[in-house]
């Protein structure tokens, strides 16, 4: 009852950085309110990742190793997490706000009788209550939200906290998991991976995002080049994803992903609030747009008014000189 459990999402056999951000914050909060911090890893290779959880502050790591967790189906993950939550019996469960987590959060809360504070930008936990601030109205407002329910789930937007290490030495508890696939009600037919994702968008230090102004393949080639020079992940607006030029996994904004890199290039993006909702926590924003009145300039640190087809070749050449 007096602990915080952190669910750690795994991608490519590695704990996601956004999960480590959530764990780092949980460790600080736990220290301040006198609560132990535990972690849960549900993955076929869970035990191999336990030491990373210890290093970031988890005193005990629940490891549930079953290949079904690698299947992207929500039902096994909900069943597995419910079991760990019963064993750990925490005050709060903290997780990174990934698509995988969003897929299970609501059902898991009903099953374990938990309140949920979803997609928060900050949070605090005491034995009496859990408080948070979460962006609402397409991030135009922040809402201070509280729950006094005995069990509260918190999902944290990526980039809300820094990853930091603690000095925890911990234990591992292997938890058995049997799942009757006949009760699934769902089968996974296929996973269509987006190819060529060299850098994970939500974890990237530099993001180059393209909008409808990046019209065609030749524009895309310029954007790709800028990304490769700066080691950036590639993002996109909804309008340009709709044209098929960029994959849906690249979409940044209210419907898409939330990013908060050190440096964000918005190329040919108008800056609709639904797009800005996903990127306005970037530290430095560079906007390239031929319309001097585009709203993206209201949030840009540096604005270049002009044609991206003229600016990008020059910028790429200049940056290549500096960076190589």
């Amino acid at each position: 009852m007096n602990s915080i459990l952190v669910y750690l999402s795994v991608h490519d056999a590695r704990i996601k950085r956004s999960s480590l951000e959530a764990l780092s914050r949980a460790r600080e909060v736990g220290k301040a309110s006198g609560m132990a911090v535990e972690a849960a890893i549900l993955h076929s290779a869970a035990a191999e990742m336990a030491s990373v959880a210890h290093a970031h502050g988890a005193s005990k790591v629940f490891c549930m190793a079953n290949p079904i967790f690698d299947s992207h189906l929500n039902a096994p993950l909900i069943a597995g997490l419910s079991k760990v939550i019963k064993m750990s019996s925490p005050r709060a469960v903290v997780m990174a706000s990934t698509e995988g987590v969003k897929d299970v959060l609501g059902a898991l809360a009903i099953r374990t009788d938990a309140a949920v504070l979803p997609d928060v930008a900050s949070f605090y936990v005491t034995s009496d209550e859990v408080t948070c601030e979460r962006p609402v109205m397409a991030a135009k407002l922040l809402a201070s939200t509280t729950s006094t329910h005995p069990l509260v789930f918190i999902s944290v937007r990526s980039g809300s906290y820094e990853v930091s290490e603690g000095e925890t030495v911990g234990t591992v508890e292997e938890v058995a998991f049997d799942f009757d696939e006949a009760t699934l009600g769902a089968t996974l037919r296929e996973i269509v991976q987006t190819t060529g994702d060299t850098v994970d968008l939500s974890e990237a230090n530099v993001v180059v995002a393209a909008g409808r102004g990046v019209r065609d393949e030749s524009g895309k080639a310029l954007v790709d080049e800028l990304a490769s020079i700066t080691g950036a992940a590639i993002g996109a607006s909804r309008a340009v994803v709709e044209t098929g030029l960029f994959p849906a996994t690249a979409q940044i904004g209210q419907t898409g992903k939330v990013v908060s890199p050190e440096l964000y290039f918005a190329v040919g993006i108008s800056g609709a609030i639904q797009h800005v909702a996903g990127m306005n926590n970037s530290r430095v924003i560079v906007a390239i747009n031929k319309d001097a009145d585009a709203p993206i300039f209201d949030v840009a640190t540096y604005g270049l008014v002009g044609d991206c087809f003229k600016i990008l070749p020059v910028l790429n050449a200049e940056l290549r000189k500096i960076i190589s």
């Binding site: 992207h72 897929d103 996973i191 987006t194």
Partner: peptide, 8 residues
């Protein structure tokens, strides 16, 4: 999903 589309 996070890194691609899943058909269920």
């Amino acid at each position: 999903g996070d890194s691609g589309q899943e058909i269920v």
